[in-house]
Simulated assay, not measured.
Amino acid sequence: MNPSDILILPGWQNSGPAHWQSRWEAQWAYHRVQQHDWQRPLRGDWNIQLEEAVLARSGPVLLVAHSLGCVLVAAWAAHSRNTHRVAGALLVAPPDLERDDLRPLLPSWTPIERRRLPFRSTLVASSNDPYAAEAHAQALAQAWGSEYVAAGPAGHLNADSGLGDWPAGQALLRALMPA
């Protein structure tokens, strides 16, 4: 699979240089889907950017989403006519945007889409993520038809979690790659 066909979908405020997504982008030449506004994300705008990134590739793509990027994948999949182009998705640390403390911060992102994804997916969640209870992540995995992987107590599975290059995540991604 061409590395540029692996689409990195960061969450709110993007992924900084120490984040595993940025490290993967630098190390493996994966393609980060750029958004117009990382600080005030609008679901419709982010959906368009993902749609254009998928359409810009000739072959199948893999989606590598973190946090809000996971919610983006579900929202996009519910409306796109191009989901057949996705070979799989790695969904890491989806937030609970319907919580009272998070809903006002990202108002265009609720309700969270809960339709079954039309492609293979693996959802990875931590038992102590400050943005979502593990039960929320398990419920999303079930609704989206994703394989659920418990990461243990690893926070938001971001740079603060000390994952470095996160080889365990890379193994999960490789398992989603088409043969």
Rank of each mutant, 00 (worst) to 15 (best):
A133N: 10
N47Q: 15
A137L: 05
Y131I: 00
V149L: 06
P130H: 04
E134D: 15
L123H: 06
A56P: 02
A53C: 04
D160V: 08
H156T: 07
P17I: 09
G59Y: 04
A154D: 02
D5Q: 14
P41S: 13
P153H: 08
D129P: 07
A53F: 01
G69V: 00
A150N: 15
A135H: 10
D45L: 06
R99N: 06
A93G: 13
L55T: 05
T122Y: 08
V86F: 03
H156G: 13
A143T: 03
P104A: 14
R120I: 00
E134A: 15
W166Y: 11
L157M: 12
G11F: 01
A133F: 00
A135V: 12
T83C: 12
G69N: 02
A133V: 03
E52I: 01
W166P: 14
S108R: 11
A141T: 12
L172Q: 10
H136Q: 10
S58F: 00
D101R: 13
D45H: 09
A150P: 03
A179R: 15
M1V: 14
P107I: 11
L50W: 05
A29L: 10
P94M: 08
Y131A: 08
A135S: 15
A154I: 00
G59Q: 14
Q27S: 14
G164M: 07
P153W: 00
V92R: 09
S126Y: 06
H84C: 02
L68V: 08
R40N: 14
A135L: 09
V64D: 01
G16E: 09
Q39N: 10
A132P: 01
L91G: 07
Q27L: 08
A125W: 07
A141D: 12
A143R: 05
N158S: 15
H36Q: 09
P94I: 03
L163M: 15
P17V: 12
A143W: 03
N128K: 01
H66N: 12
D129Q: 07
A150F: 06
Q49P: 00
A159V: 01
T122N: 05
V124K: 11
V33G: 04
W12G: 10
P10V: 05
R40Q: 14
S4P: 01
W28F: 15
A78K: 06
A150Y: 03
S108A: 14
S121N: 05
A168N: 07
Q170M: 09
S146T: 01
S161L: 11
L9K: 04
P111R: 05
V64S: 00
R40H: 15
N82A: 13
S22I: 08
H31D: 12
V33M: 05
S22E: 04
L176T: 04
D45F: 01
Q49S: 13
D37H: 10
R120C: 05
A159W: 01
Q35Y: 02
G162N: 11
V61R: 04
E147P: 00
R116W: 03
S58N: 13
A133G: 13
A141Y: 07
A26P: 00
P178C: 04
D129R: 12
T110D: 07
S161E: 08
A89K: 04
Q39L: 13
V54A: 07
D165C: 02
P167N: 14
N158E: 07
